[in-house]
Write a protein that binds this DNA or RNA. Structure first.
Length: 455
RNA sequence: GUGGCUGUAGCUCAGUCGGUUAGAGCAUCGGAUUGUGGUUCCGAGGGUCGCGGGUUCGAUUCCCGUCAGCCACCCCA
């Protein structure tokens, strides 16, 4: 091989692009259904857009370089800083709440592995200017409706939700001191990925009393919201957060996604980033990395030097999602963008010149059909019809079209099994003239062939 | 960045205890004497056996390095 894509980068051959397009279609359809509008920004940004708040250590993860104008630049690793800048620049003019989505290609300089490349596409959905938990519910409903749109069910995907404030309230009620909270977060975040003994050891080291260690680990490794409400619903430090979370769950039910959602207080996600309700989407079998993650980041816009507005959002990448759809066989077979017709010579094709036959092709294309032909006049006139038909079928063509010597043009379905109503005959002169009625009849016939082939 | 496993045709894989021109299936291309069904038959193209070095009369095979991929860490998306 003379060359291949850079490590962690993908070539999208037509089959793969079709799968990507399938995902993008679902993303756009659902985002628009929820009344979000699409935006985009530059894929290349000043390096300091990312180092300003994250520090210089993030540079190790960035695809950065110096451009010919001696500017330090980086391919965008995430969309939020760009989004924050764009919203900040017009904050006072934008109608609130802002409901925007984008499908950026993002880059990271890291070792590639399954579900994790140096480049991916990510649906970003953000809301700015609404502090109510109704917005949190709306946001998660978008993510879950994308799953549904792609054919996944509550049996395939789980939304694990948490709330930093709720966890904080619980910990304070249990007697954890403010100073101990960060250490506890660190343990809780890793709870599922490290041995229980190690977690217990770390909590002990943070000064947590032995009996409390067990309580914390039990809460972190799975507790229902009902249990939380029963135990902490009246506690002064937690009551407000329990009540808010209850309203959140009720809104999720009302939006029709309640059955996907489970409480999981071990979801911490990016200690510095989120301020309220957070969530992650996982495949229910737990085989893959997170499909999607997001939550509320009320202070981020302000800390990035922008306006002081509450905000929330999520990112959903195409890589893990694509693997899940592939595992579940949920990518549609090729066919939605099948070619409508291919010109095929029949008996006595020589009666017409190739140019005449191409006239029919041109007319059909102008009427909106997709039409292929062999691009070789000698082969059109000389190759066995059987071979031409076979080639058309293999190319995914729905119907062969013959330009016959008897003054007719005939379409013959290449879909499904042989049965009646396989052919559609038209007056060649009328077809060549592109008469509306003839074209409409042809379109109806083709649609009918596809409908019957599907069942 | 750390560790483990794996690199043979476009894809999935055989094979070579170190020995002449490295194989199969699928896919691709051409044909089966000009109107038909994902079938069948015939034929063709396609591999510097990841790359570099070492040992050897001889390396795709053994050894070392390197690159890439996968997996687990780290970290996040």
């Amino acid at each position: 091989m003379s060359s291949s894509a850079l490590p962690g980068f993908r070539d999208f051959y037509p089959d793969e692009l079709a799968r990507r397009a399938h995902i993008f279609r679902a993303w756009r359809a659902v985002a628009r259904r929820y009344a979000f509008v699409e935006y985009d920004g530059p894929p290349l940004e000043p390096l300091d857009l990312y180092t300003k708040k994250s520090g210089d250590e993030i540079v190790g993860q960035l695809y950065n370089f110096v451009d010919k104008g001696a500017r330090e630049v980086a391919l965008r690793p995430e969309m939020t800083p760009t989004f924050a800048r764009m919203v900040g620049a017009r904050a006072s003019a934008l109608r609130k709440p802002v409901r925007w989505f984008s499908i950026p290609q993002l880059f990271r300089y890291e070792r590639a592995q399954r579900g994790r490349l140096r480049e991916h596409y990510q649906l970003n959905v953000d809301i700015v200017g609404e502090a109510s938990e109704v917005a949190d519910a709306e946001l998660l409903a978008v993510a879950l409706d994308v799953m549904r749109e792609l054919g996944l069910t509550a049996q395939d995907v789980r939304a694990r939700v948490s709330d930093r404030r709720l966890l904080n309230g619980i910990l304070l009620t249990l007697g954890v001191s403010d100073a101990q909270v960060p250490a506890v977060y660190g343990v809780v975040d890793k709870c599922a990925r490290q041995p229980r003994e190690l977690s217990a050891e770390k909590l002990a080291k943070a000064g947590i009393a032995p009996e409390l260690v067990e309580r914390i680990l039990a809460i972190a490794s799975g507790i229902t919201f009902e249990a939380v409400r029963a135990e902490f619903g009246e506690a002064p430090a937690a009551a407000e957060h329990v009540a808010r979370f209850a309203r959140y769950l009720a809104h999720l039910d009302a939006l029709g996604v309640g059955e996907w959602v489970v409480l999981d207080l071990s979801i911490v996600r990016g200690l510095a980033y989120y301020t309220g309700i957070v969530f992650e989407l996982f495949d229910a079998k737990g085989e893959l990395r997170a499909i999607c993650g997001g939550g509320r980041y009320d202070t981020l816009l302000h800390s990035l030097g922008g306006v002081d507005l509450p905000a929330l959002g999520f990112g959903m990448g195409d890589v893990v999602l694509g693997e899940l759809l592939n595992d579940r066989g949920l990518f549609p077979p090729a066919g939605d963008d099948a070619i409508d017709f291919q010109l095929v010579a029949g008996n006595g094709a020589g009666q017409h010149s190739y140019a005449e036959a191409l006239g029919l092709v041109t007319t059909l294309r102008r009427a909106g059909f997709s039409v292929a032909h062999g691009l070789n006049a000698e082969r059109y006139l000389g190759q066995a019809t059987r071979n031409q038909v076979d080639a058309a079928k293999k190319a995914g063509v729905s119907a062969a079209i013959y330009y016959r010597e008897d003054g007719t043009a005939e379409a013959i379905s290449l879909l499904g099994k042989m049965n009646g109503a396989l052919t559609h005959t038209m007056d060649a002169a009328a077809a060549l003239a592109g008469e509306a009625g003839v074209m409409m009849g042809l379109r109806d016939w083709l649609q009918q062939q596809r409908d019957t082939a599907r069942h």
